[in-house]
Design a protein around this nucleic acid. Structure first.
Lengths: 330, 330
DNA sequence: TGGGTTGAGGCAAGGGCTTTCCCGTATGAT
DNA sequence: ATCATACGGGAAAGCCCTTGCCTCAACCCA
């Protein structure tokens, strides 16, 4: 691999000059030298070593993102928003998939710190796990102490910049919608129970049940993905055959529910959550609680990229109901 | 940020010793020192600087991936496969989204080279653009010369390791299926015309038309995404009202076509391509040409991570027909 | 007891780049 | 003609690590 030294030698200048030309430093350099250096760069296919540069230079340039899994539509949307603003800012994005393994999450935070990223965004780190939270807080604090910036998407039990969707209100809206339609007994397909996203949304639905004087909904837990949603629907319906509506705590599981219901040839209301792209393309089109996922990602990255402010900024993101065809009176 | 120096000083040892302990080198070290160093590391929240390490050490550790857009289901699946094998190999994955901008693609290759990645995988770089291809080849060669490994997914006009789906055969199968069903005049919603994926699939379909003695299908070009697929369906149908079947060159556009047809309340056959996850959840469930996307990603990463072999390895990936409900006799 | 091992640890040389001085030379003003 | 002022360019000091080589002491066997 050609080095700056090679370039300088070939152009007959010092590495200092070569470096200045290559980086477009403000120091003036004669046109002749500039040409010679540029020619040498081209001839040698020279690319500056990013690690050496990072070591010698001052500015951190990359940013890190820690999510459950970029291929999951929920995180894919968020990541899209994130990337848009990071790229606009000319930054390399390092994406880390945790697959919901808290240990892996902790490791990735260390790894990103080791890579001297300028900022990191964490999405989906809301576990009900005190030890994990404490450990994470410690690592993030150490990172921030060394000048790193952090933004979190989702409920945060640390003080710091965050983008927080109103999952509880969204859950309430879902329940409200179903009860207002006249349903009396509803089932809920929840996500993993150790996630705050799950419990927050669930709390909202339960509050709606109370508000309507209905019994608490029947809950069954799944994994936020389609197939577990389908399986959970089976469980729910065999345990409680008289349910007339199901609230799935995300659209992937709602799609699974719809698939299951079609298979067993039953037609009951299903409401989802998130308004993922797929929601409008299933049949019946999915009624769901919308969250502006891409925007949330963009907001989080903006926060992370902006200079630290003394008091943490928390952007609250409202949820909204999108009525389509999958919910109807009992 | 604490440095190795800080750790060494605090533990009262040299940086050499500290480094050996931290990296679990084979050199023997007394238990006492080891404990002191480990304590210092913990106290200081020390994380070794990845850049310095990369500079000083020998092994390249990260790998790069260049794709159109990770949030696009096609690339999301591929990326999932890639990541699985990269992570198993203990490597950091840097994902770069080109949004189908050849210039950006070239830039990313340079950037990954600058970051000294051990290997890179390119997916979706099959543009019909001679200048681009030449430029890309040059950059890749320079990278390989410096010990980097490259694997490409899709048609490659460079010699090197590659995973090549049989798009042409897949296209033929799609056409074959439709003609065998009795359709005489079919329309095609193609992807961007400058992509080899588009032209290869199209070639296959045209061959099927010839094989059945049918006129060449009507083609309209779109962008491989849902909305452009829906719009293209409208164009196609108003230009050729008597079409009885549509072949979309990927599932996203097929889903758009289905949506459009539902809107105008028309029911004609639609076949997709790729068998993305969404295919089985739309209504009617999408008949499609399946490609094992995640496996392709995994294979490509395996190739890229294995030592260079004198003669390039090319893994051909067969396509297969998945019959669902969206195709039927005219 | 002496020479040869072996075990534990430190010194210092990079690795490739940026950047801060610092030094000539040409330019302008007086 | 002289002095001050740019201006163009180079030398070299790091940035933070890893690792080959060397030293020193304790230990072994004959």
């Amino acid at each position: 691999m050609a080095t700056l030294d090679d370039v300088a030698r070939r152009a007959g200048v010092s590495t200092a000059t070569a470096s200045r030309i290559i980086n477009g430093s403000s120091k003036p350099v004669s046109a002749a030298l500039r040409d010679r250096v540029e020619a040498a760069v081209a001839d040698l296919h020279y690319v500056p070593n990013a690690h050496a540069r990072q070591l010698a230079g001052s500015g951190r340039t990359a940013v890190g993102v820690v999510v459950h899994d970029v291929s999951d539509p929920y995180f894919a949307e968020i990541t899209r928003g994130l990337q848009r603003v990071a790229t606009t800012d000319g930054r390399l994005v390092i994406i880390c998939n945790t697959y919901r393994d808290p240990a892996r999450e902790l490791d990735y935070v260390e790894l990103l710190r080791a890579h001297q990223v300028a900022a990191m965004v964490l999405a989906g780190s809301g576990y009900h796990d005190v030890a994990f939270a404490r450990s994470l807080r410690g690592k993030l604090r150490a990172y921030e102490l060394s000048g790193g910036r952090v933004a979190v998407i989702g409920r945060h039990d640390r003080t710091g910049d965050a983008v927080v969707p109103d999952n509880e209100a969204g859950g309430f809206m879902a329940g409200e919608h179903l009860y207002a339609l006249g349903h009396r007994e509803i089932g809920v397909i929840a996500g993993p129970r150790n996630l705050t996203t799950t419990t927050d949304r669930l709390t909202g639905i339960r509050r709606a049940a109370r508000a309507h004087g209905r019994p608490s909904p029947k809950v069954v837990y799944a994994d936020f993905d389609r197939d577990s949603g389908a399986a959970a629907t089976g469980d729910l319906l065999s345990a409680h055959p008289r349910l007339t509506a199901i609230a799935a705590l995300n659209d992937s599981m709602a799609v699974g529910a719809l698939a299951f219901l079609r298979d067993v040839d039953r037609r009951i209301s299903v409401i989802g959550f998130d308004d993922m792209p797929i929601a409008r393309d299933v049949t019946p089109a999915l009624t769901t609680i919308r969250l502006p996922l891409a925007d949330m990602g963009a907001q989080a990255m903006s926060l992370a990229l902006s200079p630290a402010s003394p008091d943490p900024r928390v952007e609250r993101v409202p949820a909204s109901l999108v009525e389509r065809a999958s919910t109807f009176p009992p």
